[in-house]
């Protein structure tokens, strides 16, 4: 199982911070990237951005949070 290389906690951040932080991690190129968000808007925005870059996105709900795992 692949080791998680990068953790991003984007909970409670206003637009466009969740996408901005994720994009910076993608540009660094260390995959997979685990992004934790707490709202559906951030989830949808990050998923759309990552899929637009032809990356794989796995989504799981954990209590009140949503975890997106982005991999190549």
């Amino acid at each position: 199982m692949a080791q998680t290389a990068k953790e991003i906690d984007a909970r409670g951040l206003s637009c466009p911070q969740p996408v901005f932080l994720t994009l910076k991690a993608i540009d660094e190129g260390k995959f997979p990237i685990r992004v934790t968000v707490d709202n559906a808007t951030a989830k949808a925005n990050i998923r759309r951005m990552a899929q637009g870059k032809k990356l794989n996105v796995a989504i799981e709900d954990k209590d009140e949070d949503i975890i997106l795992t982005i991999s190549k």
């Binding site: 637009c15 466009p16 951005m49």
Partner: peptide, 17 residues
């Protein structure tokens, strides 16, 4: 849909979205 007239311009300029 999260419609936003400011996010629209911001996302194009920042992310080409």
């Amino acid at each position: 849909t999260r419609f936003c007239t400011v996010g629209a311009i911001r996302d194009v300029a920042m992310f080409k979205d």
